[in-house]
């Protein structure tokens, strides 16, 4: 199973790990860290939206958060997903 990662555990950042799933399994998101209790729903929504914009539909995502806001989360999801699919990270 292919896996790719992006981000750090520095303040205001997060580590996003994206792994391939079987076709049809959809997007699953697991999270841990400071903001999860308060913003878990929003984190899942942003993660799924970012992946769908990249035309990625079957992956499992793990997020270790250290206070990343929405902008940083989306950037890290995109970087990890682009690394997974081997595309040009632009």
């Amino acid at each position: 199973m292919k896996t790719a990662q992006a981000g750090t555990l520095e303040s205001m950042d997060c580590i996003v790990t994206v792994s391939e799933s079987e076709k049809g399994r959809g997007i699953s998101v697991s999270m841990e860290g400071a903001s999860v209790a308060r913003f878990g729903g929003a984190i899942i929504d942003s993660t799924k939206e970012t992946l769908k914009n990249l035309d990625i539909h079957d992956v499992s995502v793990s997020i270790q958060d250290n206070g990343a806001g929405d902008l940083v989360l989306r950037a890290r999801v995109e970087a990890a997903a682009t690394r997974l699919t081997g595309g040009d990270a632009r």
């Binding site: 992006a6 981000g7 902008l71 940083v72 989306r74 950037a75 890290r76 995109e78 990270a89």
Partner: peptide, 14 residues
């Protein structure tokens, strides 16, 4: 480099 480029782009867009 790839990850930083995406992050910088999004910070600039903000």
């Amino acid at each position: 480099k790839d990850s930083a480029r995406i992050l910088v782009r999004d910070v600039l867009k903000r």
